[in-house]
Amino acid sequence: MVTYRDAGVNLAAAQEAKRRIRHLAQTTFNAQVLSDIGSFGALFRPTFAGATDPVLVASADGVGTKLKIAFLTGIHHTVGYDLVAHCINDILVQGARPLFFLDYIATGRLAPGIVAAIVDGLARACRNFGCPLIGGETAEMPGFYGDGEYDIAGFIVGWVDRPHIIDGKTIRPGDVVLGLPSVGLHTNGYSLARKLFFETARYETDTQVEALGCTVAEELLKPHQCYLPALEPLLGSRQVKGLAHITGGGLLDNLPRILPAGCAVELRRGSWPILPVFSHLVALGQLPEEESHRVFNMGIGMALVVAAGDAEAVSQNLRARGYEVFTIGQIIAGDQTVRLT
């Protein structure tokens, strides 16, 4: 007799993983969640207090090859946090606040402890940023993923009142570009970073690198910053004309996504601190400036476009609440490109 377990699927492990996930997810629930984990679908009753024309904003993303660092180190409780933070930032750029989050975890052999660690990171971020984890999927797929490997994806739904949508349409030459700092690579550029650290420099994950002030693993597992706490008080002010989450494509490819026709961005070199990890990677790979600013965030995780007359007030608002902000450039007449000056 051949069983499902003989084929590589452990139903008992799946049930144990679901039990752990249910407990962690419940810690993120609020009064708008109307169903428990385990239903075929999740029930959520949104409230849009004070909104005149609420609009849903949805996004999906993953963590990319940062997961390889989790595999190498056995540290799995940070990548879930990264996923939630990344997804919140992606809808934040349109002025949206999160409503709820769903996850997808796929692996070759389901290990309840690893799944629970991943979901612990998801739940921690969801609690921190008021975004209930209301459901998801855990798939055991033997023969599809290598031993000890998995992939994760996140799905987020948020909302914005239509009059307060941030879409970049009012951006004009003369506007100012502000930058909020990143804490490291966030979740982008890891394929190149792994090649430079592990193949070019021949580091191990536990190698202490003086230039970084920590081990390679500690640097590469630094969390993806979530900018909702910094920016939420500004969302209804109409002072922010455009927001760009600096992810894959870096400053050079993400800023043009919010520019209207006839506008370009001029970024000033040296106007923000380049984090040591980026300086070290550039030196290891002898990377051209354009390549480094297209692959990595180079120390800026979120960019804001504001009118010149609002730049000081917005900066003071952020600094008064304990957030760093840098004036990194300006909008000029052009063809929706970015140049460094």
Rank of each mutant, 00 (worst) to 15 (best):
E232R: 12
D310K: 07
R294G: 12
C87A: 15
M1P: 06
R257Y: 04
T327Y: 00
H245D: 13
L251G: 12
V33F: 07
A153K: 12
H86K: 15
L243V: 14
L267S: 11
L235T: 10
A12C: 02
Y4I: 15
L259F: 07
A320R: 15
G80H: 01
R194C: 13
K18G: 08
P256F: 03
E266D: 13
I258R: 09
L67D: 07
N128V: 00
L252T: 14
D90N: 14
V63K: 05
I37A: 11
S59R: 09
V209N: 06
A117Q: 15
N89T: 05
V176F: 01
E16I: 07
M141E: 13
S292C: 13
L34F: 00
I69N: 08
G50M: 06
G301A: 11
K241W: 00
V282L: 01
T337Q: 15
G135M: 06
D103F: 14
P46E: 11
C131V: 12
D90I: 00
G135H: 06
A303C: 15
S191C: 03
D151K: 06
E291H: 09
R22M: 08
T27N: 06
Q286T: 10
S182N: 05
E149C: 08
A313R: 12
R172L: 09
R294K: 12
F101G: 05
T205I: 09
G309D: 14
A51K: 04
K241F: 00
G108N: 06
L72E: 09
P229V: 09
L196I: 06
F278A: 12
E232S: 15
P132S: 10
I328Q: 11
D147R: 05
P276K: 10
Q26M: 13
G62C: 09
T52S: 15
A125G: 11
Q32C: 04
F44S: 07
A7V: 02
N254A: 10
G62H: 06
Q316H: 12
A51P: 01
A13H: 11
F197N: 09
V93H: 03
V119A: 07
Y190D: 04
K222V: 00
G38S: 07
G146R: 11
S35Q: 03
R238V: 00
G146K: 10
Y227V: 06
G38P: 09
I105G: 02
I274K: 11
L185R: 03
M302R: 03
E291T: 14
L287M: 15
I21S: 04
R294N: 11
I171K: 03
G179P: 03
L110H: 07
G189H: 04
R109S: 13
I328T: 10
H186V: 01
A106T: 05
R257S: 13
S39L: 09
S182M: 02
R172E: 14
